[in-house]
Amino acid sequence: MKNSLTIAFIGGGNMAGAMLGGLLGNLCQPQDLLVVDPNPATRAAWEEKGIPTAEQASESLSQYKIWIYAVKPQIMQQAVQASRVFLRDDTLVISIAAGLTTALLSDWLNGADAARSARLIRCMPNTPALIRQGVTGLYAVPTVPEADRELAERVLSSVGAAVWVGQESQLDAVTALSGSGPAYVFLFIESLMAGGIQLGLDQDQARRLALATLKGASLLAADSEDSPARLREKVTSPGGTTAAALARFEQGDFTGLVQAAMQAANDRAAEMARESAAGSTVTDTGKK
């Protein structure tokens, strides 16, 4: 028997897998879930966990309260058009595709019924969701009922924290900070390791020291009442080793470089949205 929370994933890749991992045994049981994916290997992996799968969209989708579109942006329109006929008026639709605005998604969904795109939420998760340590930015169109907003937050909170934004354009900033952010951290870890090796440590030593340092500093910043700036000051003795290192960071405008990198990510996210809108094909209702 299915419980009241039933979720269909349209697309069963890595991010869907992260979310499914957080949901299973927590908010849902295997029989409450469905994965729709054309890849036989992907379906087999989920079937091993007891989760029903389907090769393509069908009438069975109408039985699920939440649809999560977890396909690549390039094939989202195709996925929406193949499934929208099975939407019900109370279906909550969540998209995790980058660069596809709610306006564009609503236009594609409206091929079924204009009322059925009224419950649409767009979100930007990140890869630490794979270990339930992610953070997701969410934006809901104004017509989404409060109960559905709470439901979406429950689902996304199963793999980490959830942060709402009031304007859809802010999702570009979320993408630049937390969506792309893990890559910045991984680059910093690589750099710390390379620096340690250059100074005489072996690779294992450098890796263990770098990872433990990042983890410990992050946990300290999360738990401390002090701001990150104050914590940095506490580590930095005048004329000491940390001060010498930070002076080199400042000489290279480290803060400005990070901000410029984030601006580039933000601008690219906005550009992707424009490209998706421009590349949208004519739907079977004659819309653009």
Rank of each mutant, 00 (worst) to 15 (best):
A194L: 06
L219V: 14
G196P: 03
A210N: 00
A194F: 03
S224M: 03
A221Y: 01
L192I: 01
S224Y: 01
M193A: 14
F186I: 13
L214T: 10
G196L: 05
F188V: 09
G196I: 03
M193I: 15
G195S: 00
L220R: 00
K215M: 15
A183I: 10
A194P: 02
A206M: 07
A206L: 07
L201A: 05
A194W: 06
Q198A: 14
K215L: 15
A222F: 08
R207F: 14
L214H: 05
A222D: 13
A212R: 13
L211H: 11
A221G: 05
S224C: 00
V185D: 04
L187E: 12
A222W: 07
A221F: 03
I189L: 07
T213A: 12
G195V: 00
S191L: 09
I189W: 02
R208K: 13
A183R: 11
A194N: 08
F188W: 11
D204Q: 13
S191C: 12
A210Q: 00
L187Q: 12
T213C: 07
G216Y: 09
Q203W: 07
L219E: 14
Q198K: 10
G216D: 07
K215V: 15
G200S: 00
D226Q: 14
D226P: 01
D226I: 01
A183V: 10
F188K: 04
G195R: 00
A217I: 02
Q198C: 03
S218T: 09
I189Q: 02
E190V: 05
L211T: 12
A210M: 02
G216H: 08
I197M: 15
M193S: 13
Q198S: 10
S191R: 07
E190G: 01
Q198D: 06
D202T: 08
L219W: 10
F186Y: 15
Y184A: 02
G200V: 01
E190H: 05
E225M: 09
L199G: 10
A221K: 04
T213F: 06
T213Q: 04
L211M: 10
M193L: 15
L192Y: 02
D226T: 04
